[in-house]
Design a binder for these strands. Structure first.
Lengths: 224, 224
DNA sequence: GTCTATAGTCAGATAGAC
DNA sequence: GTCTATCTGACTATAGAC
């Protein structure tokens, strides 16, 4: 309950970054919400950029460890055969969505922040987050290739790209949802429900057969 | 070439917003790049927020008009039957991706900006962009429902959500791509290629049959 | 419409007492 | 480790000459 100064800063920063974005959130906001002194951020983290990185590392590193553990278990459980595609997808997306289960720990807030981070402009953050993801991608990609042997390599790249995109968007809890659905997002943000819906959608997308190569591309409708 | 002051500001703002985000971009940056006086922004647009809105409106309104035209043509061409799902999806995503075709006009930059806008925290921008999308959603949604009569309403909502998510992520040209693929995004950002790949993926995802209702959900793998 | 000059506020970061 | 006080610079926005 009475967290350390460092922990209180991380919590407050996570919260405000998720609500307002990084550059719109000042250290003064953060320290005020954390009820610590303004100078504490610079003392404990050095710079604002380093604080941003720490906010991500705190949850991203365990989350990716969870992903790798699930992948290992899945591959072992089915060896020497390939694991089912839907289970593979689930191993990738579930650890992210699980974060929202620990709502009291701020996991849900972080999920929103994480979703947005994929499209954040800051080159520095991009680099930091990418580094935290490298091992996950390196381990999942060859398994996907094995499970989907009919997909050419470049097509698989794109489809993984699409997969990550859906996940990122769902995590961000984009308010656009309120426009598409009349319902509110969080009313129905049941992790199991969402994981299952996502898995069904993504499994079908990943499995989509390629159109015959000699077929003409989609006919163009006139454009200016 | 020698654009009006207003146009030069819009171009420079679009460019910098796409590169750095909104709150990280100052009016000083914008006016410097546009080579106009600092006070010109406030003279022509009033406030920074109004400038942001103008940057979006300039391209979003024509883009959505294009979407509605394609939808109309498509429905008419197949009446009284339903249009094919892939053509319906294409009518929705192509007008967005087409923007990158007009690279000289900065369409590609705007595409990145648009992709990011879906997850932007600013409540004001959210509201403005949502308003510009309302008619598009209201017109496309019932046609999707007709083409996919087996999907329950709430499932359709989620799938449209997923669809928009993929599109947003692709538009943002997220650098995460460089991690998944070894290639660079823009090397292969051929609009037709991407539209076709997206259409194939999304058509399969939208068509995915629901798992039997009485079947247990995906078995849980242990989590802490 | 375009400029200069500036008001008024807020930012990140640090020095130095305790 | 935590505090106060402050430096230095940047920000949006506006007033008023031209």
């Amino acid at each position: 309950m009475t967290l350390s100064t460092k922990g209180r800063i991380l919590d407050a920063a996570e919260e405000l970054f998720a609500e307002q974005g990084f550059s719109a959130t000042s250290l003064r906001h953060i320290t005020a919400r954390a009820r610590v002194n303004l100078a504490a951020v610079n003392y404990h983290f050095g710079t604002k950029d380093a604080l941003v990185e720490a906010v991500f590392a705190r949850r991203l590193i365990p989350m990716n460890k969870d992903r790798l553990q699930r992948l290992d278990r899945l591959v072992r459980a089915h060896a020497p055969q390939d694991p089912p595609l839907d289970r593979l997808i689930e191993a990738f997306i579930a650890p992210a969505l699980e974060l929202s289960r620990h709502a009291t720990e701020g996991g849900a807030r972080f999920l929103k922040l994480l979703g947005r981070s994929y499209t954040e402009p800051s080159a520095l953050l991009q680099e930091q987050v990418r580094e935290m993801y490298r091992e996950v991608i390196d381990r999942f990609r060859p398994v996907f290739a094995q499970v989907l042997p009919d997909l050419p390599g470049d097509e698989l790249y794109w489809r993984l790209h699409f997969l990550v995109g859906v996940l990122a968007y769902c995590m961000s809890g984009a308010d656009m949802m309120r426009l598409i659905a009349s319902c509110r997002v969080h009313d129905s943000l049941d992790t199991n429900m969402l994981t299952q819906r996502l898995t069904v959608f993504l499994t079908a997308g990943m499995r989509a057969p390629l159109p015959a190569v000699d077929a003409p591309t989609l006919p163009e409708t006139a454009h200016a």
